[in-house]
């Protein structure tokens, strides 16, 4: 599959959404609503649950399956209220020392008048800011679509995991094509250039765990084996991360992002005489 075929695959009906992961991997999930400020965004599903026998906070961007549900959840486009609800739940997790697991699946933050009036930019910024120093382990799993700041707002984590056909991008390939070629139908070309696939992002260390996904999500047997395997991996990794010293955990998290696109001088930041370059992809 080329990059754009994979993207189409993440948009296919029948693909597991955040709620499916929550139901299959966790026990006794209790959903909490609202950002305690303005409203409740159905595009974010979050609450507490047991992972194996450990209480965790789990938060997902939910697109929904049936048309009515998809409309109600705004097709997984999260409003500022949704990001604030997610952050509220994360701060709660920090208070009670619960690890956080996020499932990201969005074509981008909610785009509209209300989102701007309620501070979409500020809400996303606040999540990035607070997540960087959240004193509990965070794993984010990119399960389908992951477009722009709207996806990043739940992806400041100790580890980013990604399904093999999921994508994570700075800009949707359609928007990229319409800017570059003034033609959004050339999204397939743009998708290749953006290096948005799980394989590309694993190569440049943005993604820690590339996850093999079922050929067919509707095949019950295959899907349940897949969920079981993800559960085992989550249990194992969260156990490891929870055992780490918190200061070290936060230092590692900071460094994970700090090293991406590193090129300026450290410390005294003196203007260097030679020009710095950095290359990432070997091919």
């Amino acid at each position: 599959m080329n990059a754009y075929e994979k993207i189409k695959c993440t948009r296919k009906a029948g693909r597991a959404t955040a709620k499916d992961y929550i139901d299959s991997i966790f026990d006794s999930f209790i959903e909490f609503h609202g950002d305690r400020r303005l409203g409740d965004d159905p595009a974010i599903v979050g609450g507490v649950a047991f992972l194996d026998k450990t209480p965790v906070t789990v938060i997902g961007i939910e697109k929904g399956h049936e048309l009515n549900e998809r409309i109600r959840r705004n097709f997984g486009c999260v409003s500022p209220e949704g990001y604030r609800k997610a952050l509220r739940l994360m701060k709660e997790a920090e208070k009670f020392g619960r690890p956080v697991v996020c499932f990201v699946d969005t074509q981008g933050a909610s785009c509209g008048k209300g989102a701007e009036e309620h501070g979409a930019g500020q809400a996303i910024a606040d999540n990035l800011y607070e997540m960087m120093t959240l004193r509990t382990p965070v794993i984010t799993v990119m399960v389908g679509e992951g477009s722009s700041g709207g996806a990043l707002a739940l992806a400041v984590a100790d580890e980013i995991w990604m399904l093999e056909n999921a994508y994570f991008t700075v800009v949707s390939p359609e928007a990229c094509a319409s800017i570059l070629y003034k033609d959004s139908s050339r999204a397939d070309e743009a998708a290749e250039h953006l290096k948005l696939s799980a394989q590309d992002l694993t190569e440049i260390d943005i993604v820690e765990n590339l996850i093999k996904e079922p050929q067919d999500f509707t095949d019950e047997k295959e899907c349940s084996a897949f969920m079981d395997s993800m559960k085992k991996q989550l249990v194992k990794r969260l156990k490891k991360l929870s055992a780490e010293n918190t200061e070290q955990l936060l230092e590692n998290r900071y460094e994970k992002y700090r090293k991406i696109g590193r090129c300026a001088e450290e410390g005294a930041c003196r203007a260097s005489s030679k020009t710095k370059k950095h290359g990432l992809f070997r091919r």
Partner: peptide, 8 residues
């Protein structure tokens, strides 16, 4: 690409 997004 994603290198830009991660700068945020």
């Amino acid at each position: 690409g994603m290198i830009s997004l991660m700068q945020m």
